[in-house]
């Protein structure tokens, strides 16, 4: 039955090659959009992950904190399960770092009255369980005497992740609309094939052919159009990726994440092809249901 359905589907596609080509093109554009969003999503996810693993907690101390209180805080933080390491940065060290990083601003700050507070730079463990514990710890630290302020990277990372998720959902919604449009195109082409085969279909019904034989070619035709469209979209996406890889890597490096952009993983690439096959097959099945 499968061989019959596939061979008839290929005959149909050959018979209406121009319509089939347009349908494949529409599917390819829709899946290129979807694939593009997946690619963006995967790579941005990797960048954010990298930032998250390097997240730090900065605890700014009051200038008047005494050495005993400071050392007690360092000891307490060092033994916390979410903390990987604690480093004390004295006022002078902070000023040195600033003038090294921003030499052109050295005159503005001057050296007589150092405005930088002493601080503790707390490097956190990268695992997810530690993140929750670190959130609680950051909240508690702001209440401690001797602590002037607490800056926690993860808080803005969480906000960034929220924005990324919104963009990702919007992209998927746009891609879904395009895929739906492409499905209608596939349905139109399969419908044309059904019309061209009306004598065959009449005969099949009259000889008592099972529905699998009657509808199989339409489903196979839809699946082939969708599948080929999805594979072409992957090829196009790869070509665009290779052409832009250098610039993308530069952009990611500029964001401070030392990671190379990567093409879609095998799961997502396979998902794209399976989605193409499925969308086409479903469109073919729906259209073929006119044959009763």
């Amino acid at each position: 039955m499968l061989a019959y359905a596939l061979s008839e589907a290929l005959v149909n596609i050959r018979r209406a090659s121009q319509s089939a080509a347009m349908s494949i093109g529409t599917i390819a554009i829709a899946f290129l959009t979807l694939g593009g969003f997946l690619l963006f999503s995967e790579n941005l996810g990797a960048v954010v992950e990298r930032w998250a693993s390097a997240a730090e907690l900065s605890v700014y101390l009051r200038d008047d904190i005494d050495a005993a209180a400071r050392d007690a805080l360092i000891a307490e933080l060092s033994s916390h399960p979410a903390v990987a390491a604690v480093e004390f940065v004295a006022k002078d060290q902070a000023l040195d770092r600033f003038t090294t990083d921003f030499p052109e601003l050295g005159d503005v700050v001057g050296s007589a009255d150092n405005p930088f507070p002493p601080s503790l730079e707390v490097r956190l463990r990268p695992d997810g369980a530690a993140a929750g514990a670190a959130d609680a710890m950051a909240a508690q630290l702001t209440e401690r005497s001797g602590v002037a302020d607490v800056r926690y990277d993860r808080q803005w990372l969480a906000r960034l992740l929220g924005v990324v998720t919104t963009v990702r959902l919007a992209g998927l919604a746009i891609a879904a609309v395009l895929v739906l449009g492409a499905a209608f195109t596939v349905a139109a082409v399969v419908r044309l094939s059904l019309d061209a085969r009306h004598v065959e279909l009449d005969i099949m019904q009259l000889v008592g052919a099972p529905f699998a034989f009657i509808r199989g070619p339409s489903i196979a035709e839809g699946a082939l159009l969708g599948g080929v469209g999805a594979v072409l979209s992957l090829a196009a996406l790869w070509a665009v990726f290779v052409a832009l890889r250098g610039r993308l890597n530069e952009a990611v490096a500029a964001l401070g994440a030392s990671t190379d952009v990567k093409f879609l993983g095998p799961e997502n690439a396979l998902l794209l092809v399976v989605a193409g096959l499925s969308v086409g097959a479903i469109a073919g099945l729906i259209v073929s249901r006119v044959v009763r």
Partner: peptide, 26 residues
């Protein structure tokens, strides 16, 4: 069944038109 207008598939040969009735029954 036999009809006045024959109902043959123009793109299939004589042999294919007849064997088609068996083919679609598996």
């Amino acid at each position: 069944f036999v009809f006045q207008d024959f109902k043959l598939v123009s793109g299939k040969t004589v042999f294919e038109n007849v064997s088609f009735a068996l083919r679609v029954l598996g």
